[in-house]
Design a protein around this nucleic acid. Structure first.
Ligand SMILES: [Mn+2]
Ligand SMILES: [Mn+2]
Ligand SMILES: [Zn+2]
Ligand SMILES: [Zn+2]
Lengths: 140, 140
DNA sequence: GCCCACATTGAAAACGGTTTTCAGTTAGGA
DNA sequence: TCCTAACTGAAAACCGTTTTCAATGTGGGC
């Protein structure tokens, strides 16, 4: 199934309406293999649905985040972007050059977490990991 | 040496002046074993130097960040806070209850990074890790 | 200790991303 | 097709952060 349809299904399944502006946002997210800011998503969405408002972009992103279909990533410069997330616990590797993003889920932090837990006394219940580097296309 | 003096020395060494408002910010950072938002730092700093402006708080945080003496942490709710950083590569464990924070530097991600690099083709050059949990004081 | 150049300060305004408001529109079940 | 609750977008509000600029304070030189 196409990524766009998967996203659409995710929303429909929970009783959300599939409006034109929402579909435009889904199309943009499905097509982009990179992290996108709300502003960029808005710019692209308008090529699919002319009068899509930025507000609707934010609302759709909130919806999809709540469903676990996308995830907010924090860039070093402070601005926030979104990337597709295929459900469940996972992390992203982001290309510092073109922002392309790949998800990975084999985050084997067990040993590390145990060591930190022992050394700090903190009972660790969650973690947050982002990797940065260069994608195959952007290597020198 | 006291943490406050270490911070003061860090600034003085680079030719920055040790003004009253700056000292107030250093005192707050040195005393807090937790992550603090700029607004909270501002609030506390005024008990040391009455007319400290929020602008000066931001400027001092920028200075200390550039020196590597503190680090910005990204909270899940989107708002940003600062924590002391003892120089060099390290990460933080943050208590989800009281925001207390402890630094750790034995981040042994070599195996994980190699695996991700092999599976994704990305040449990984940096990472960003935050751990969340409960500190000894906040455990049930 | 005093002076002075210049780094630093804070009030106010600007800024940019995000959220709220609200009257009009639309999807989709009956 | 009709109806209603969900949804939309323009505008304004909001909030954390940065810029501006005239006034002030620091610390080195004397
Ligand atoms: Mn952030
Ligand atoms: Mn590390
Ligand atoms: Zn790339
Ligand atoms: Zn705690």
């Amino acid at each position: 199934m196409l990524v766009e349809d998967t996203l659409a299904h995710t929303l429909a399944q929970r009783g959300y309406k599939l409006t034109q502006p929402r579909r435009a946002v889904l199309k943009v997210l499905a097509a982009a293999g990179a992290t996108l800011t709300p502003a960029e998503i808005h710019r692209r969405a308008r090529s699919h649905c002319l009068h899509t408002g930025l507000v609707t972009v934010y609302r759709t992103l909130d919806l999809l985040t709540a469903c676990g279909a996308i995830r907010k990533v924090h860039h070093a410069d402070g601005c926030h972007a979104y990337a597709l997330a295929s459900g469940g616990h996972a992390h992203h590797v982001i290309c510092e050059c073109c922002q392309s993003v790949v998800e990975f889920d084999n985050c084997d932090l067990g040993t590390l977490l145990a060591a930190v837990q022992r050394r700090t006394g903190y009972q660790i219940s969650g973690h947050w990991l982002e990797l940065f580097g260069l994608c195959p296309n952007c290597r020198p």
